[in-house]
């Protein structure tokens, strides 16, 4: 049977490499890239050393350590979603403001052109 450690290591390394690739080719803004860089390192580390979580789980008194990983991962995903929505709200505000300013400036340009004619 294929050892579990190999499976988790392969998944972790592939996911990590995809993230590194995206960061390297500037597909992620710096402020998001740092978060994903940490995630990539963590995913590779935990993929290669899956037993690490068992030790943390035992230390924290969690009877079934993989649950700890799921809870932490889910919390992180929720936090990330929250942050994404905050960013999206900000972007929407900026788009509205830009639309309003652009309409106003276009109005000024048009009235100046009318004056020239």
């Amino acid at each position: 049977m294929f050892p579990y450690q190999y499976t988790s290591a392969i998944i972790g390394i592939i996911l990590g490499l995809i993230i590194f690739f995206l960061i390297k080719h500037d597909r992620l803004h710096v402020k998001f890239a740092f978060f994903w860089f940490i995630i990539a390192v963590a995913v590779i580390f935990l993929g290669v050393f899956p037993k690490f979580f068992d030790k943390i789980g035992n230390f924290l008194g969690v009877s079934y350590p993989p649950v700890l990983l799921l809870v932490l991962a889910l919390s992180l995903v929720l936090l990330k979603l929250l942050r994404t929505d905050i960013e999206r709200s900000k972007l929407e505000q900026r788009i509205k403001e830009l639309t309003q300013r652009m309409a106003y400036l276009e109005g000024i340009i048009e009235s100046k052109e009318h004056e020239k004619q």
């Binding site: 509205k96 639309t99 309003q100 652009m102 309409a103 106003y104 276009e106």
Partner: peptide, 25 residues
């Protein structure tokens, strides 16, 4: 009327705010 045009549709309140910017300026 004086007309200001939005380049994207962003809703009635957004359009009214454009009007307030105009009024202020």
């Amino acid at each position: 009327a004086a007309v200001l045009s939005h380049c994207i549709n962003c809703g009635a309140w957004c359009a009214i705010q454009t009007g307030f910017r105009y009024a202020l300026n």
